[in-house]
Design a protein around this nucleic acid. Structure first.
Lengths: 159, 159
DNA sequence: TCTTAAATAAGAACGATTGTCAATAACATA
DNA sequence: TATGTTATTGACAATCGTTCTTATTTAAGA
């Protein structure tokens, strides 16, 4: 919701192109599911997407939404907030720090930078609410994963 | 693992102080669980913490680890990577952007800043692996939550 | 040491996610 | 446009992570 028609259409066009290129079938379910996520400003979870899709497609199943979301992720058409499919992970480092996260295996390491700690946050962000803290999330591929051949085997090594 | 004794001890001291201040009991389980997370460099999940605690305390139960982790979070002694207790959430915005996240309800909004897009990442980060992208995660309290009285009722409004 | 409330362990229960499979629909081809 | 092939769907069972319940144990103050 609340994404402009223009932007939504741009995303839909990208979707149709990517999905055909990938050789997977274009179904009503997939179109509607992508339309929902592409027009959402609020980064919904699967259940929320499901509810929104049902408004137009009452017979859709929750499974299909799950399957489609992961497919969209694999195709690089959407991303997840935080680590996908991952469990909650904890951090006892209460100093100011930043994270490097491996997009393949989820390995996460802290790093420090006084320069980054002093980052200027745009004034407009205060329209959303008060600001407590900020940290940079750097996403990449860790050395271990880079050394592995298999580029699509994103399991294991969650250390 | 791999956190220096000095730093671990510093964290343990902070833990003992905070836990007594909070008026909760100091149990062996809690000490060992905190010791594990305080000495871990790798941001483990609950299951991993559980396994490490069992090396020293074989009878500890998984529930206790769960309960203790949430307690530590409530006491502000640890934090979670990404949104805690939350389901996976999706983002169809593939442009360069940054996030504002409400620490109470999980509300997440995008914002843009060319200045931030050009951020310099310390060279040392490359020791972890290759860098694909980076974004700033700003944590605060959204206006809706700020308007509510209850400061500890962190549910609802996950829109 | 004794008392009491809080914390624990164990196992049941719950909720989110995934797997299985028969029925259906997309798409290539005729 | 009709048909065959194969991926996809929906229903429901199964799985896995997390939480709840309860009887038992333990920390901490009297």
């Amino acid at each position: 919701m609340e994404i402009s028609f223009k932007e939504t259409n741009k995303r839909m066009a990208r979707f149709e192109k990517a999905i055909r290129q990938a050789g997977v079938k274009v179904t009503i379910q997939r179109l509607e599911i992508f339309r929902v996520i592409a027009s959402s400003i609020d980064h919904p979870d699967v259940e929320t997407v499901y509810e929104r899709v049902r408004e137009r497609l009452p017979t859709v199943s929750l499974d299909t939404v799950y399957r489609t979301m992961w497919m969209l992720l694999d195709l690089g058409l959407i991303s997840t907030l935080g680590a996908s499919r991952d469990r909650t992970r904890f951090d006892a480092n209460m100093e100011n720090h930043h994270h490097f996260v491996c997009s393949r295996c989820g390995l996460t390491r802290d790093f420090y930078s006084e320069e980054l700690d002093g980052i200027k946050i745009p004034e407009s962000v205060k329209d959303f609410g008060s600001i407590e803290k900020a940290h940079l999330e750097v996403v990449g591929v860790c050395k271990q994963c880079a050394a592995k051949p298999n580029p699509k085997a994103q399991e294991e090594d969650t250390s």
